[in-house]
C-alpha cells in the first residue's frame, strides 16, 4: 500500500510532472483541509537554528579527518585560491552553479544549503591549509542516500572547475585540489 501511495505522490509531484512548477513559496500556502503529510509519515519538523539558520543534524563525531583527505602544507595552495576570501567566493559560485545545473539540481532540493555552504567552505579551506578546521560529517555519511551517479560526480567536477577558473585559480593548482577530492568518489557515488 505505501508503495502505491508513494507512487501516487510521485505522479502528483509538480517538479517532475509539470514543466512550469509553481515556486515553493506558493506551495507553502496549503489549502484548508490539506493532509498533514509530516504527521502521516511521522516526520519530525526541524526548526532552523535562530542564529545560524542551519537545520539540526543527527549527532556525529567532529574531526578534521572527516574532510576525507590530508591537507596541503604551506601557503602556496591557499594563495593560489585567494585565501579565505577567495575560497568563500569559489565555494559560493560552485554551490550556485550546482543548484542551477539541470543535471544535478534535484540532488540539492530539500537540503540545508546554509550548512552546505559552511561545511564545504570549511572543507576546502582546511584542505588548502588556509587556516580553518573542518567540522562537517565524513564524505560517506554526508552523501548517504543522495543517489549520486558517476555522471552527477562529473557534473560537480565541471562546475567546480568553472568556479575555480572564474576566480583565476591556475589550472595546475585546480588539479592539485581535484587530486585530493577525486579519491572520495567511492564515498560519494552510490549508483
Amino acid at each position: 500500500m505505501s508503495v502505491l501511495l508513494a507512487l501516487a505522490l510521485v505522479a502528483a509531484d509538480p517538479a517532475t510532472s509539470e514543466p512550469a512548477a509553481p515556486p515553493p513559496e506558493s506551495a507553502a500556502q496549503e489549502e484548508p483541509g490539506a493532509v498533514d503529510w509530516a504527521k502521516e509519515f511521522g516526520v519530525a519538523k526541524k526548526v532552523p537554528d535562530p542564529v545560524t539558520g542551519e537545520l539540526p543534524v543527527d549527532p556525529y563525531t567532529q574531526a578534521p579527518a572527516n574532510s576525507g583527505a590530508t591537507p596541503f602544507a604551506g601557503a602556496r595552495m591557499a594563495e593560489a585560491f585567494g585565501g579565505q576570501a577567495g575560497i568563500r567566493r569559489i565555494v559560493g559560485r560552485f554551490v550556485d552553479l550546482n543548484i542551477a545545473d539541470p543535471r544535478i539540481a534535484d540532488i540539492f532540493k530539500n537540503h540545508d544549503m546554509i550548512r552546505l555552504r559552511r561545511t564545504l567552505f570549511e572543507q576546502f579551506c582546511y584542505l588548502l591549509d588556509a587556516g580553518c578546521t573542518y567540522s562537517g560529517r565524513d564524505m560517506k555519511s554526508s552523501h548517504k542516500g543522495l543517489g549520486v551517479t558517476r555522471g552527477n560526480m562529473n557534473a560537480l567536477v565541471e562546475n567546480l572547475q568553472r568556479a575555480m577558473r572564474e576566480s583565476k585559480v591556475p589550472f595546475a593548482a585546480q588539479n592539485r585540489l581535484l587530486a585530493k577530492l577525486a579519491p572520495m568518489d567511492k564515498d560519494v557515488v552510490e549508483r
Binding site: F41, K45, N98, I107, F108, M113, R115, T119, S142, L156
Partner: peptide
Amino acid sequence: MLNPSSGASARTR
C-alpha cells in the same frame, strides 16, 4: 565533497 544536511523539511506538499 559536498555536505548537504539530511534534514527533511516537511513544510510543503
